[in-house]
Amino acid sequence: MSDAADQIFAALKQSSQSGAPLYLQLRKSIEDAVNRGLIGPGDALPSERDIATKADISRVTVRKAVQDLVKGGILVQRHGSGTFVAPRMERVEQSLSRLTSFTEDMARRGMAVRSAWLDRGLYAPSPDEMMVLGLSSSELVARVARLRIANDTPLAIERASLSASVLPDPAGIGSSLYAALELTGNRPVRAVQRISAANLGEGDARLLEVPPGIAGLHIERISYLASGKVIEFTRSIYRGDAYDFVAELRLTGPSEEGRS
């Protein structure tokens, strides 16, 4: 039996919730072991069968306790690999007053950045893309979708749309879309960003390595050139447990003083 199992069952023996349902006792023992550092981020949990055998409880009880902890973000399950203690996330604080790329944001924090490409291609535009980017039905739209990863932790899914006249070869983009746009004089200078809460669907949750249904941030951004022309339409999903968006608020003038 692994050291992790011994630590869990030591915590289980110390549980004071003897009158609570078994799955709650087991859930608390695992959570206590994690919080006390007896098992750390990335450590594998014993199998359901091993836990059930040693604790003398049913596998259904074990499964219920584990699923509760997965939903709570304490554990993560990886298909074909098992159940692990979730990594401790270092929250990223991002200002809403600066228009920067993900690559620039993370590099400024000294974090190693990489992307997993989900899509790069030219397509017929959707009605939303036609409306926002000012495209006709006969024009093409360039779509660039990436899973953004910092320090080996997936943080965001970005899905950007641009006119094919601006980005005729999406496959040629390197690590930064904005760097590629800057080379052609098409880097945006301002943007309007709308942020809303969202429960992550199964596909996005799988990419971000979080449980389906967990809270996330849906961000829609429309970016503009200095001329006022829309250059980019991006819809992103960010992990809710990793990001804080911060805005500085200022009094606009003496006439506003005293108002609440």
Rank of each mutant, 00 (worst) to 15 (best):
S138F: 02
L200Y: 07
P188G: 04
A150S: 13
A145P: 00
S137H: 04
A180I: 02
R143I: 11
R187W: 04
R190A: 12
A156N: 09
P154Q: 09
S161A: 15
D152Q: 13
E202S: 10
T184S: 14
E202T: 09
V166F: 05
D169H: 14
D169W: 05
R190S: 14
S138H: 04
P168F: 01
I149W: 14
R148G: 06
V141M: 03
S137A: 13
P188C: 08
G201S: 14
S196N: 12
A156R: 07
V141F: 00
I173W: 13
D152M: 06
S176C: 15
A164H: 03
I173L: 15
G203Q: 11
L177A: 13
L167H: 05
A171N: 01
E182Y: 04
G201R: 15
L167K: 04
I195C: 01
S138W: 00
L167N: 05
S161R: 08
L167C: 06
N186W: 07
L147S: 09
P154W: 07
R143M: 07
A164L: 03
L155F: 12
S161Q: 08
S137R: 12
R159A: 10
A164I: 03
S137K: 07
A150E: 04
G201D: 15
G172T: 12
R143D: 05
V166G: 00
I195P: 00
A198D: 05
I195V: 08
Q193T: 11
A179V: 05
A197L: 13
A171V: 05
Q193A: 10
G185F: 01
L167I: 05
S165V: 08
R143V: 13
P154E: 10
G185R: 03
D169I: 05
Y178A: 02
Q193I: 06
L181K: 02
D152H: 10
S175Y: 00
D152C: 08
E182W: 03
A198C: 06
G174T: 15
A197G: 13
E158Y: 09
R159N: 14
D152S: 13
P170T: 11
V141Y: 01
D152T: 11
R146D: 12
N186E: 14
G174V: 15
I157W: 01
V141I: 05
R159S: 12
V141D: 02
L140R: 13
R146K: 15
S175N: 06
L167G: 08
A197N: 10
E182G: 09
S196L: 10
L200M: 13
R148C: 07
R190P: 00
A180P: 02
A160M: 09
L147F: 09
A164C: 01
A197V: 09
S137M: 05
T153N: 04
N186D: 12
R190Q: 11
S176N: 12
S196F: 03
L147K: 11
V166A: 05
L140C: 01
V189F: 09
P168T: 03
L155D: 03
R146W: 15
A197W: 08
